[in-house]
Design a protein around this nucleic acid. Structure first.
Lengths: 123, 123
DNA sequence: TCCTTATTAATAATGATTATCATTACTGAT
DNA sequence: ATCAGTAATGATAATCATTATTAATAAGGA
């Protein structure tokens, strides 16, 4: 029978309490403050399980998996230059997926943020 | 000075001539038919370079980087269950990014395709 | 308490990607 | 055409993130 262990709860709480989109390593170093002997493998295992059951969202960016405690489908805006990730609401316009009967779980928009665009302008 | 080598051209042509969204390994095994002694590292290096300069698109799915010879911003629908990836046009509605002055390069929509949804229905 | 089984820590193993480096192949000038 | 400089390559080692293994521990239920 599935148990809800102390560490799984801690990991879930940690995700819920932050607005960035941490990697497993980031969650690990954070929960370590509360349970110093927690293992990195435990963090990976639980994050994977939580993502598979839909309790949290996950997506990979820059070769690393990022996690989001907010499992409600929404948009992740990711700057491929500076790596910044921000949330945006899911617009109705993405109902196009209904035509495909495609059940949307998560949307990732890759591009260049305004700050990086400014910096790369030729002067 | 930047050169446009025979292998880079071959890799680019290979991408242009296929509608799937191959990984580096897939491109490698394909271009090998034409240049048998081409190295996997060469494929990785060129794909990375082409993606960085915006000639092709790239996004990671299931822990692997996928490439798309069509660099025009569009949507990639990815079923997280079966791994199928399909193209869709980018709707005007994604102009929301203009409010952020965010320059969209690529959009990835993760979810469950209709086939997988049917299969997982409890009967 | 005892038994069964989920969970864990520690660590080894895997798999994808990147770096290294000696060699090869362009390109432009002499 | 020869030469010098340098980009690109093949082969392979190294790296990094993630997953698997395994023996030990902990949590429920009988």
């Amino acid at each position: 029978m599935k148990r809800f262990s102390k560490r799984r709860q801690l990991i879930l709480d940690n995700l819920a309490g932050r607005s960035d989109h941490p990697t497993a390593e980031m969650v690990f170093s954070s929960v370590r403050d509360q349970i110093p002997n927690i293992s990195l493998g435990t963090v990976y295992r639980n994050l994977k399980e939580l993502a598979e059951q839909g309790t949290i969202l996950s997506f990979s960016q820059n070769g690393k998996e990022h996690f989001d405690g907010n499992s409600k489908p929404h948009i992740h805006i990711c700057c491929v230059n500076c790596g910044r990730i921000e949330d945006r609401p899911l617009p109705d316009s993405l109902r196009f997926v209904n035509e495909d009967s495609f059940l949307v779980k998560n949307v990732i928009v890759q591009g260049i943020c305004s700050d990086c665009a400014k910096k790369s302008e030729v002067s």
